[in-house]
Design a protein around this nucleic acid. Sequence first.
DNA 1: AGAAATATTATGTACGTACATATTATCTTT
DNA 2: AAAGATAATATGTACGTACATAATATTTCT
Lengths: 233, 233
Amino acid sequence: MNSTEQQSWQSVHDEVLRRIHTRVWKPGDLIPKEVELAEQLGCARATVNRALRELASEGFLDRRRKAGTRVAAHPVRRAKLDIPVIRLEIEGRGQKYAYALLFSERRTPPPEICANLGVTAESDMLHITSLHLADGKPFMFEDRWVSIKATPTILDADLEKISANEWLVLHAPYTRGDIYFSAVNASAAEAKVLRTDPGTSLFLMERTTWENNTGITSARLLFAPGYRKHSAI
Amino acid sequence: MNSTEQQSWQSVHDEVLRRIHTRVWKPGDLIPKEVELAEQLGCARATVNRALRELASEGFLDRRRKAGTRVAAHPVRRAKLDIPVIRLEIEGRGQKYAYALLFSERRTPPPEICANLGVTAESDMLHITSLHLADGKPFMFEDRWVSIKATPTILDADLEKISANEWLVLHAPYTRGDIYFSAVNASAAEAKVLRTDPGTSLFLMERTTWENNTGITSARLLFAPGYRKHSAI
DNA sequence: AGAAATATTATGTACGTACATATTATCTTT
DNA sequence: AAAGATAATATGTACGTACATAATATTTCT
């Protein structure tokens, strides 16, 4: 690289990554400081900074003020998982989406939901179960509790037409959430809804979302057999 | 916000996010352009740019040159999953890590591995199975194929002492990889290794990694019952 | 009117300077 | 020598300017 051509932060990013990959800089190594790299690569420090910042957020570098920048000793790969609305996930596979509301009731929550959302047992909540279908076949079974106090307008939503999943995404934005992925054996009831056999291994996604410190909704999303969640890393 | 105090891109980030959350700007809405926002918030365009860029990468905004910036119509939440070395994951839970090599053999791969890695059936590969334990209990069963052509030094590694998982992370950096998460019923053999019952639902992580277009390794990581993968979103 | 060329515009990025901040290294004091 | 104060330093960030780029809007040409 000569000093005349303009450098993009991407080219710096790629060059640094190349040096990590080719072990010019090994895990744990201290790499040159920003000003030195900028000089080496013929660009401004801001450009190097942007590239290194990106690499740090990707988990390749550890950066600390005054201490400098090191190649991550234990490369933690950060997989980015897109969590779209179920309808879009199904349509993205080129399948036809359908949805059925199974059950909707206003009542007080069971203990595990109280614990998840941090609410009292007397809370006013909406309990909804529904089924999402791809090409007419059961794809995902949704069992959800929504806090009516946090999201009163949910009572006006026509949950026969739009799934709670999608309604909430559009009307109840949240500031933070938890997701847990696990595997469970289908219960008799779950197996029946998903048209499979009891005991079949199912992929489970448990999601709880919050607006500041108010619990909004807690959902149990159970996917039909064969479901795989993909991520490129 | 007055124009004298210095703005940080984070405060701009938070303010824009607040406006999205409070529906000042609704999904699909066009938000003010960078120069206008900068004027409103009393900071430089670069600062607004940084904040909006971040929000776009988080999935809250859609940005296009000339067309402007819109609130994402279908907020795709991007969960960040950390995929550390198994040893660190177990130690991070405060448990004691142990590891046992079960089996290691140099041979040609079966068809599904060839397909995964894009190699021929005559490839020279190392097949390794091992067990990772947390506090003495089976935690994860690893079934891995490693391309000897891509990583010849694996033959010198003492896989009784260091797991292939960890050795590869340190010695065979990759440029890209795939991860699939799913749920499977334990086979008789798998159940025996993980000390559980056949048919038990198990969390499965399938990983394939590449250096440019050369397949390096393909692994099947089967977690003991009760395993949950967490992510904050 | 329709197509092609051109102008316009919002975002994308580079650069240099300035200062903030966290952390380490050094010096001073007791 | 230990503790505390102080200096040094690499990264973190803000700002203004300049230009690049992609997408849209407008004008020109046929």
